[in-house]
Nucleic acid binder design. Structure first.
Lengths: 223, 223
DNA sequence: ACCTCAATATGAGATATCTCCTATTATTAT
DNA sequence: ATAATAATAGGAGATATCTCATATTGAGGT
């Protein structure tokens, strides 16, 4: 993890810095700095106290919940403008999560201890936070209810459509399996089935969508 | 649905009214009133606009998400002090949920249109709302991740312990099945198994816990 | 009191999904 | 560079869970 002075960063990323200024009150920004995490580095660990509120400025990360039985579930992917640690700020979180950088990540880091007061008295910030939390709640609920109301192949179709890029699906299978909540083995089976059914074409380790309509029909299966 | 004047209600429920006064700014309370819903009545329908923010004062209700494939999942039980419609207040909800009274419910109703401004500018209210949403997020996440990381018998054990009263479990099986996310048939199987394993005793339609330790061990199964 | 609909109960058979095993590549770290 | 670790890939067998069918019992409405 590498720390960078906020002023230095601001010079190179003017537009992002402007957005930051609209999100956080000035008094708080004086204490903030930039953190860079490299791929696979832990941003937050479930068994360590969290000291900062982060705002993800660049890169992708993933949140894991760690269960008592040792199993870990990938509960959310984070991208630009996502908060990390906002539940600690409002003091509702008892069990921290693991947050891991997927690729190189740049974050704004705000020390919790000294900023809490300011943030919780800033109306605009609170309003934004509420919207952010509400949105997160809805997304997470959708994700998980889909999980129990749809069969895996429907969910996988939806996931592929959601994450594909130029018709190419190249997520790590291990991560996909953790996120969509099936065993690695079963993911492979289903992927092969999609291949046999003429939905996907496999080239090396990548899959290409060759019948998008069919995949879309599968993703919103009503029967 | 029966409407009652807030003043009339306040006379009979002084303590509850005091709590309400701390939650909502005065200007908003002037427009508020009391709603009484009877058992099985819809408080909110997924296909109708929502006009009020509700605060549940008495009774229990349940939230359903309605999927495109027609299936419905029970996503949360509501009790005293839970909000209904708070996501519409902050304008993040696109797909409404069904909210149904389980028994007779008493709610404070705040007209959304005329109160939105006031509420979103009240710092205390926003702070409370953030905490409420954060808490809801965590609970829902726990519920659903447990769903994929634990086998059904473990989850059922946990659920029974959570909802039992004086050692007696008497929830409707249909509701339980919807909440814990298995078919009614499979719930029955597992309940029978609990009976055979000496965890539960059946009397009429009620189940009584006869081996709590064993049930607790099952609920937090680490292996 | 009678009818209707919802909830309870259970059987039989199908299958979606899991666990465990074993190889073969990629990636990362020393 | 080379070892070590993680990711990909697939076989074989087990089982958790589902769907469908049917019968009985309970509760609410008129």
């Amino acid at each position: 993890m590498e720390k960078i002075n906020l002023k230095d960063y601001a010079e190179n990323f003017v537009d992002i810095y402007n957005d930051i200024q609209e999100t956080f009150p000035k008094a708080v920004l004086h204490q903030a700095f930039i953190c860079k995490f490299s791929s696979n580095e832990y941003i937050v660990r479930f068994d360590e106290d969290i000291q900062h509120l982060f705002l993800l400025l660049d890169g992708r990360a993933k949140i894991y919940i760690v269960h008592e039985n040792g199993k870990r579930a990938l509960i959310q992917f984070l991208k630009k403008d996502d908060f990390i640690g906002e539940l600690s700020l409002i003091e509702v979180e008892k069990n921290l999560k693991d947050v891991v950088a997927i690729n190189d990540c740049t974050c704004l880091a705000v020390p919790l201890a000294s900023s809490k007061e300011h943030l919780l008295n800033d109306n605009l910030f609170l309003h934004n936070l509420s919207k952010y939390l509400g949105d997160k709640l809805l997304k997470r609920t959708d994700h998980y209810t889909a999980m129990q109301d749809y069969e895996f192949k429907n969910r996988l179709a939806k996931y592929i459509l959601q994450i594909e890029n130029d018709g190419c699906f190249q997520e790590k299978h291990t991560e996909t399996a953790e996120y969509v909540g099936v065993s690695y083995r079963h993911l492979l089976y289903t992927l092969n089935q999609f291949h046999e059914d003429g939905l996907l074409e496999k080239k090396g380790r990548k899959y290409f969508i060759i019948n998008k309509e069919k995949l879309e029909r599968l993703s919103s299966k009503k029967d």
